[in-house]
Write a protein that binds this DNA or RNA. Sequence first.
DNA 1: TATGAGATCAACT
DNA 2: GTTGATCTCATAC
Length: 190
Amino acid sequence: MAEPRGLPRSFFARSVHKVAPDLIGATLLVDGVGGRIVEVEAYHHTDPAAHSFGGPTPRNAVMFGPPGYAYVYRSYGIHWCLNFVCEREGSASAVLIRALEPLEGLRRMRRRRGLADEHLLCSGPGRLCQALGVTVAHNGLALDRRPFALTGRDRRPEIAAGVRIGITKAMELPWRYGLKGSRFLSKPFR
DNA sequence: TATGAGATCAACT
DNA sequence: GTTGATCTCATAC
């Protein structure tokens, strides 16, 4: 039978470059609200654009802990961004969750976002966190326990790769992954 | 459709 | 004091 199973913590105990594309198509719920992951970005510790590049700080401490935990930080003073911590490979790495296809808890997402347009509910890291109610209170929580619920995909979808968005360092690295053809991407792949 | 400002916090120079 | 893994709204073409 095809009962989907929750992702074990060991799923994240691998290279961020394997975990990131494997997350495309998986389902993420936070307190029962969420949907299908359609866009992520990998941040490796050798990468000048990664928060962990310069070593541990109070903000990024969770990235230096064990894999399978949530790293949440404030972006531009306004938004929250959700990451999944992966294997350290010498130093910290994580996957930034950039966009979901909303499936569960549409009403709560709309209420939190104050919007009716389904396409804009979760298409972007800041929007996604607002819709799912993710804040710094989730920083450091395990991904295999409540309020998180992560479910693996049953089939490997067609995955697009491209350059990352909104960064000024290491802009050429093609470490953004997305569900090919999804209408819920924060930006189309070229 | 495209560009620009403002919001506002943690890290860094 | 400046910059950033962003988003929204306003104004211009």
